[in-house]
Design a protein around this nucleic acid. Structure first.
Length: 474
RNA sequence: GGUCCCAUCGUCUAGCGGUCCAGGACAUAGCCCUCUCAAGGCUAAGACACGGGUUCGAUUCCCGUUGGGACUACCA
């Protein structure tokens, strides 16, 4: 039996949790759950100038919303500096690293020079065997990279990838201020935390041989690697702010369900035959790295929207109630004093589910159920609230007034009898009523709408529509 | 520039040498259903980047070309 699976998601808090990061987190999460392993959250904040606590919170909030719960952490690298110091000293003692006294601007100059001459801008290793260190310079520590041979990454997704060690350079592992750099900490932490599988974006593939050399220098076996293809924007460049919302929480605000986003994300790169819709339980069972593709994927908001509508349509309306409430508040459809009638709201939502693609759309439609009065759209009013439709509106109002149990079934009876009395199609009567009740030409079935709006409000709205006709006629 | 990765409909993808004049999904168009809008049903259009091999046979294997992407920092 192989040892316990331990994976980690290691974002750097230099921004919000974005779409790409969320997918990486998801794949790690699924892999851990599938193998009954451990999912660790680690915050890579060694870049002190760009990392903020605000972003750390945003990342954690994002993961919470998506329900990607971690088993250990969150660990912060800035809390672990003594560990890295110890590891760095170990490197130095083993002769696998050395102090470098070259200064940043001087390095920068040499790099530019090298590029100008068409040479690889690689550190030349001039401090490797320095005898007399210059005085007054705080040194960095560089890793002594083997100059010959090959490093091969046996990637679970990309296959075997070879790198000549000669193209790898003596990169800095400790800055002159004593803080460690990414390619070093990542290895220290992964060793320290017993990580068995590194699942991350393939933008890290080129870093992998460097990291593998660090493992080797420590005398440790490297974990398994799985490099996920990137997610690109519609112009096939790396996904960024230019492509609209990239923060996962922005999708929350736009009325997406977390499981819809997750379902969308998992299908970017991973597939299971022709299946498109997966519950999270299904995913933890069916997910496998073997069926992750190699090529990058373009983020397609249209398909996400479709999936979201699928999830809304198939949700238990009672569950949607709690999702919808914050929207009703923020959209000012209700205020803080409003008392929710859960049963009624559930019924109202049930009529709107299959015609709402987002919770935002759904909440917006709820407006005409909840409000005291509606404002009639000008165009709709002109077309359906006029002298010609007035008799129907009046007749509907009169009949509805007499309905004792005001329910869809009874209301249907009213419309049916009116249809035969006036010998007209339902549309002739329903459309004007719809406009009078909802203010617009689009809504669920008219019987349900009247039922949910209720007798009192319905009659009031009909009356006000009829009156508006009389007024314009004058 | 160097190194590395990638390449099937507009997009996400199935395909792991014959089952493919390439299947599904989103989007698009048309029709049906219908009190409006949706939902649903049916149909249409739409792809193996190119060139060489290997093979009896390539979407599938190999090599180039082209195109895209990543990395190349005292960022992660």
């Amino acid at each position: 039996m192989s040892k316990e699976v331990r994976v980690r998601f290691a974002p750097s808090p230099t921004g919000y949790l974005h779409i790409g990061g969320a997918r990486t987190a998801l794949f790690n999460y699924l892999y851990a759950r599938k193998h009954k392993g451990t999912f660790i959250l680690r915050i890579e904040d060694t870049d002190r100038s760009r990392s903020t606590d605000e972003f750390i919170d945003a990342i954690i909030d994002g993961m919470k919303w998506l329900n990607l719960s971690h088993d250990e952490g969150p660990f912060r690298q800035t809390d672990r500096t003594d560990i890295y110091n110890k590891y760095a000293m170990d490197m130095l003692e083993k002769g696998k690293a050395y102090y470098c006294y070259c200064e940043p601007d001087e390095l920068e100059m040499r790099r530019k020079e090298a590029i100008k001459h068409g040479k690889p801008p690689k550190y030349d290793g001039r401090c490797r065997d320095i005898k007399t260190p210059p005085i007054g310079i705080k040194p960095t520590i560089r890793f002594k990279m083997p100059e010959h041979g090959q490093t091969v990454v046996d990637d679970l997704i990309k296959g075997s990838v070879d790198f000549d060690n000669s193209v790898l350079d003596d990169f800095i592992i400790m800055r002159s201020d004593g803080s460690p750099t990414y390619n070093f900490v990542v290895v220290c932490d992964d060793i320290d935390m017993g990580i068995t599988h590194i699942i991350r974006g393939d933008d890290h593939l080129n870093n992998t041989p460097k990291q593998m050399q660090i493992y080797k220098a420590f005398g440790k076996a490297a974990p398994a690697f799985a490099h996920l293809p990137m997610i690109l924007g519609s112009d096939k460049t790396r996904l960024s702010k230019r492509h609209g919302a990239t923060s996962v929480l922005a999708y929350k605000d736009m009325g997406y369900l977390p499981e819809a986003l997750l379902n969308y994300l998992v299908r970017l790169g991973w597939s299971f035959g022709d299946q498109e819709v997966f519950s999270i339980e299904e995913l933890t069972e069916k997910f496998s790295l073997a069926s992750v593709g190699k090529s990058s994927a373009v983020f397609n908001p249209e398909k996400l929207l479709w999936l979201n509508s699928e999830y809304i349509k198939n949700s238990d309306p009672a569950r949607l109630v709690s999702y919808v409430k914050p929207f009703l508040l923020s959209m000012k459809i209700v205020d803080e004093t409003y008392v929710f009638d859960e049963g009624w709201l559930t019924q109202a939502i049930a009529t709107l589910q299959e015609r709402s693609r987002t919770l935002l759309e759904l909440s917006n439609s709820l407006r005409y159920y909840i409000a005291d009065t509606v404002e009639i759209d000008e165009k709709a009013g002109k077309k359906f609230i006029n002298q010609e439709t007035k008799p129907f509106l009046t007749a509907v109002a009169d009949k509805l007034k007499c309905v004792e149990s005001f329910c869809a079934k009874e209301i249907e009876g009213v419309f049916l009898s009116l249809m035969s009395e006036h010998n007209v199609a339902l549309g002739k009567i329903a459309q004007p009523v719809r406009v009078a009740i909802t203010g617009n030409t689009v809504s669920p079935g008219i019987y349900e709408v009247l039922d949910i709006v209720g007798k009192e409000k319905s009659l009031k709205r009909l009356k006000s529509a009829i009156e508006s006709i009389s007024n314009t006629a004058l």
